[in-house]
Design a protein around this nucleic acid. Structure first.
Lengths: 336, 336
DNA sequence: TTTCCGGGTTCCACGGAAACG
DNA sequence: CCGTTTCCGTGGAACCCGGAA
């Protein structure tokens, strides 16, 4: 019928008419450029650009049953820890002709809602953070069979996973402090219902210091909602357990920075009076004085690998290895 | 034909068969619940849940030409300034039955690509940050006619805008410092090609201090890429212009914190020797000692209003007022 | 190049039940 | 009492735009 829409909407049809070719040629020009004669293709793309035509993903998805959009759910953008993770995802998908969309979710309910939205969009895959999800979300993911990657998770994946061992990282930090001669080491954790990637650290700490013949009773839990403000609290708490505390391991560099501020107020020298270790290698860790010794997770690589797993699965390649360990390293700075 | 898909895909059809109704009734159960007899509807929804059915947004979008998904492009999640903005958007769309998806774009090219993706998805509207966009993106937006909101912009909108006046905010900060008795006020800006929401501040500063009969030559530009590290640089730069500098206005609280760190190293008392003002009211501004006097943009409200403008437009209501000023306030703390 | 779907929506027709004359 | 109108829950047909064959 070759009927043009009465409204202003530009479709493949209108581009085809304007370029004097069939709709199929337009389609091919976009999806399989080499199938179309160069001259034709360029004319088609040129006219498409002039008309402001962008292929309708909804229609394409419906017709082909495929999608080149991947969804990622991240818990928060409040701190910078996910910046490199997202950048890694972003750049990897771009290199492979995919596109990334993000959903924010501060709670498991929100995560479940985000997953529902992404499934409604029929994305090619979903990247989640952590291994805690609502049951409803789990069953939905299972039933629809979308490729799912859990990031910041290093074992027992729901489907696929990419992460590093927070247990190994805790061990590495503790061992570093011991090697440096600290013996009265305190640990700051989060209280209440927080993600496994935090709760795993405490038992690792206990095991590790006891293995070294040290005491593991210097433990204080703080509220995750507090940022820098948690520093003074944590220091007070640990000092009331052991006033001669000589080192402190913090759950994030933000808390560590808070401890440094408090040390400044008390006139304590770091690391002479107290060594301070952080986690995450945020920007503040290198900018503050003294610099904070910190665990640097390879977040960028995590993002890359998460996308790579999804894209391989989408292309039909089933990998043997469904868990990728992207590792971490310890950045030693003046605070320890 | 009522043919069930051979693969595992759950469609409206399969739900209809399982519930013993027509596909139309399933559709109505989801979209117009009151059109369907309560008993029937509940059975349908129940069975849909059991099968793990989620309506295919792609198909729905195609058929109805409508979408309940709004896209937002944000420049970075590296710092916390957009956290409240995103939260405001998120919560507002949820209350109105819409869904928000995010795209990250660190550059104008990436922004243009993000816009292209969102248009491909045929979203109901697009929220951008700032008023600088690639020409290709501008024409595409114009031609497709999607509702567009520019946030953090307070005038000359491309389509609709929501923001606050950085000029007024600069004036407010300068006036506060003058009232507090500071006369040798320095200004730290960003060099090179940065967003208008930064570049507008310098002329406002100059005009304002000159109006008060003060000198406006204490100006130093830094690289936007630097975080805390910019503090020492800026302080060095301004001190070489005027060693007796008594106040400094920073482009962000991060830079202000960097200045505070440097003051600590130099043994300078804040605000006795130097008053420090920041911008953004990041978490660090309240947590650090002394607290940083800062401009608090109403980012949450900005997010809400951005979504509200788009949703109203999508519902066919054309507003007279296409620019919403959500304002700001100055949070006075010990640093000035 | 053409034909024929994909999964859902719009629009309207259908038919049974209740209300009315 | 029965025929007719109205209402409302439900279903049928055409169509949205692009992709596979």
């Amino acid at each position: 019928m070759t009927k043009l829409r009465p409204d202003g909407k530009v479709t493949m049809q209108s581009v085809a008419v304007a370029a004097g070719v069939s709709p199929m040629t337009v389609s091919n020009s976009f999806r399989y450029p080499q199938r179309v004669h160069e001259e034709t293709r360029e004319r088609v793309l040129q006219i498409a650009a002039e008309l402001g035509y962008v292929p309708n993903h909804a229609a394409g998805n419906l017709a082909s049953g495929q999608s080149r959009v991947i969804g990622a759910v991240i818990p928060s953008i409040k701190n910078s820890s996910f910046y490199n993770y997202v950048r890694g995802m972003q750049e990897h998908v771009a290199d492979n002709g995919y596109q990334l969309i993000l959903k924010l979710a501060d709670s498991l309910e929100q995560e479940a809602a985000a997953i529902r939205t992404l499934i409604g969009l029929r994305v090619a895959g979903i990247a989640l953070v952590g291994d805690e999800h609502e049951d409803s979300a789990r069953t939905l993911l299972k039933k629809t069979g979308v490729p799912v990657v859990e990031a910041w998770v290093h074992r027992n994946p729901f489907d696929m996973a990419v992460g590093y061992s927070t247990i190994d990282a805790t061990r590495a930090i503790v061992e570093l402090l011991i090697v440096q001669g600290y013996t009265r080491i305190g640990f700051v954790g989060y209280e209440g219902d927080v993600s496994h990637r935090f709760t795993e650290r405490l038992p690792a700490f206990i095991q590790c210091v006891e293995q070294a013949g040290l005491s593991s009773h210097r433990i204080f839990l703080i509220d995750q909602a507090h940022g820098f403000g948690a520093g003074p609290q944590a220091l007070d708490g640990l000092c009331s357990i052991d006033p001669e505390l000589d080192a402190i391991i913090c759950p994030t560099d933000i808390v560590a920075a808070g401890v440094l501020f408090e040390c400044g107020r008390r006139g304590w020298k770091v690391p002479e009076r107290l060594a301070v270790a952080g986690w995450g290698d945020y920007e503040i860790a290198s900018e503050i004085t003294p610099g904070i010794t910190s665990v640097h997770p390879h977040a960028y690589e995590m993002g890359q690998n998460a996308m790579s797993l999804i894209i391989e699965r989408a292309n039909g390649n089933t990998r043997q290895q469904v868990t990728v360990d992207t590792g971490f390293h310890i950045v030693e700075r003046a605070s320890t």
